[in-house]
């Protein structure tokens, strides 16, 4: 699904990623943990196509060079980034945005675009599943949403778009325990043998709800240790300083 080989990245001459290797197979859930400034968000930005980084190394997504794809093409091919800080877009209705987004992706895949009624049926069910208040669908995209509502909205987008590879960038930060459970249930309901997840987090807490197949520790732009979910527990006990 995703293969990262010796990825290096610098921004304004400051090197952030220093030879990162990661291999995610279909159906796997990987957790990437690391202290502030270790390069977690840089990795998710680079994977989703944000400009402003100088990179070297290779990233293959479904055996194709990811860097050959524009931002929106990555989305069309099933890559999804749940933002750490989802942006507020004034004047854009949340529902219309979700429909525009889904139809842009369906169109690119050669699938039939959904009309308003077909879309409404889907969105209503998904919103209900995620306990996402229906009135928020008719608000402006993320405008005035609480931190938790914004994160839930990201997961709602994810469940509508049904991506093959989802990158969750600190989706758990700012969530109360109930919201964390709902968001985790949302992710778990999407899990199957074809869909993969890269979950970026500071804390082990989220991983109590979303059981990862692999846990990696990112420090100074490099994965310094990989293991199974026990590694997350070890991290929680020892802290990042205690991991070598």
């Amino acid at each position: 699904m995703l293969e990262i080989r010796n990825l290096k990245a610098t921004v304004e001459k400051k090197s952030i990623l220093n030879g990162l290797n990661l291999h995610i197979k279909p159906g796997e859930v990987h957790a990437l943990m690391g202290p502030n400034g270790s390069g977690k968000s840089t990795l998710s930005n680079i994977l989703s196509g944000k400009k402003g980084y100088e990179t070297s190394g290779d990233v293959f997504y479904e055996n194709k060079n990811l860097f050959d794809l524009e931002i929106e093409e990555r989305a069309h091919k099933g890559l999804f980034l749940a933002f750490q800080y989802p942006l507020e877009i004034p004047g854009v209705n949340n529902n219309n945005f979700l429909k525009t987004s889904l139809n842009a992706i369906r169109k690119a895949r050669g699938e039939k675009e959904l009309d308003a009624i077909e879309f409404l049926k889907i969105i209503k069910q998904k919103a209900k599943d995620l306990k996402f208040e229906e009135k928020n669908l008719n608000r402006q995209l993320n405008v005035g949403f609480s931190g938790g509502e914004k994160k839930k909205n990201e997961i709602l987008q994810m469940s509508i778009l049904q991506p093959k590879l989802s990158i969750l960038d600190e989706t758990d930060s700012g969530l109360d325990i109930d919201a964390l459970k709902i968001v985790s249930d949302g992710v778990n309901s999407l899990r199957d043998e074809s869909k993969s997840f890269l979950i970026i987090t500071h804390y082990q807490r989220l991983l109590n709800y979303i059981k990862p197949d692999f846990v990696h520790v990112l420090k100074n732009g490099r994965i310094i240790k990989s293991g199974n979910s026990d590694l997350a527990v070890e991290l929680e006990n020892k802290g990042y300083e205690g991991i070598n």
Binding site: S48, G49, K50, K51, E70, I71, E72, R74, A75, H76, F80, L81, F83, P86, L87, I89, F97, T100, S101, L102, A104, I105, A108, Q157, L161
Partner: peptide, 13 residues
């Protein structure tokens, strides 16, 4: 940043 956000959702520039 807003353009980027929308593009990650499948919209072209």
């Amino acid at each position: 940043n807003k353009i980027f956000y929308l593009m990650t959702r499948g919209l072209n520039k």
